[in-house]
Design a protein around this nucleic acid. Structure first.
Lengths: 138, 138
DNA sequence: TCTTGAACCTCTAGTTACTAGAGATTGTAG
DNA sequence: CTACAATCTCTAGTAACTAGAGGTTCAAGA
């Protein structure tokens, strides 16, 4: 099923219609084909791209970072350049995974605790506290 | 080392000064002690809280979601209520981890490919494309 | 103790990433 | 060939910051 309207794209992805148009203005989504009457018509590539953007946003990437990731996927950067960008994102992704795993563990603990006991002080905040930030005192 | 200025807090965490004041206005950070001359003085609790907020933001949580997580940590919700909130966040965290792992794998592949070969079309976008979103066609 | 410049204060206005609404045009089921 | 839902553009509003103006406070050094 190709050539669908902005309403269908919005429905399929859960992305609001004005947001889709905004991403187009920002150059994050390829300009779609237009009907005689100037209405947008999308295909599977647009769907894939929009899905990528939405997930990236949920994961905390900025639009500029997403632009860079799209560039990588399109082989717009070559060799060393691409290497550096990919490495940078790889490291930030690994850090995010580590933090989320720590948070996940604390939430899991909470759920386990709540089911049988009562007031165990939860350590959700400690989970994402970066101890390397401690002010110097020992 | 207790009782430090907003400048020191900013330096320790990497959070800009106006942002720290903004989080205070939003009730995300406890109001700090003020000197005679009305200047803010912070302690380790503030540092921990701010560090948590910053990491949560990087991980894509909204300020409202962060408020909820802080509420959990403070035992402001009890029993079933807390359970539901924790469960909701636990699931969203697990989904984020899965997506980041997929993205991490693709970036790793890119880095490995770049080091020996040349133009392998990267699958960064496919990594975060949710196939359950596919339009119906088979 | 007194000075003086860096750091802090509040308040207003600008930026990014959306989101909602007004008013006009187009697409399509009946 | 209607009629009305969906689309169009454009302007303005929201969330989460961020920068700057104009004024006050803090603390190191004379």
């Amino acid at each position: 099923m190709q050539n669908f309207s902005i309403g269908k794209l919005s429905e399929q992805t859960g992305c609001k219609i004005p947001t889709i148009r905004y991403y187009e203005d920002e150059g994050l989504i390829q300009q779609p084909y237009r009907t005689e009457g100037n209405q947008r018509r999308y295909n599977r590539e647009h769907l894939k791209r929009l899905s990528f953007i939405m997930h990236s946003r949920e994961l905390g990437f900025t639009l500029d970072e997403i632009r860079e990731l799209i560039g990588l996927s399109n082989n717009e950067h070559v060799g060393h350049d691409a290497d550096l960008i990919a490495e940078k994102h790889f490291q930030s992704v690994e850090r995010k995974i580590a933090r989320l795993q720590s948070l996940s563990k604390e939430l899991r603990n909470m759920l386990d605790a709540c089911s049988h006991a009562e007031t165990d002080r939860c350590k959700v905040i400690e989970a994402l506290f970066d101890h390397s930030l401690c002010l110097n005192e020992h």
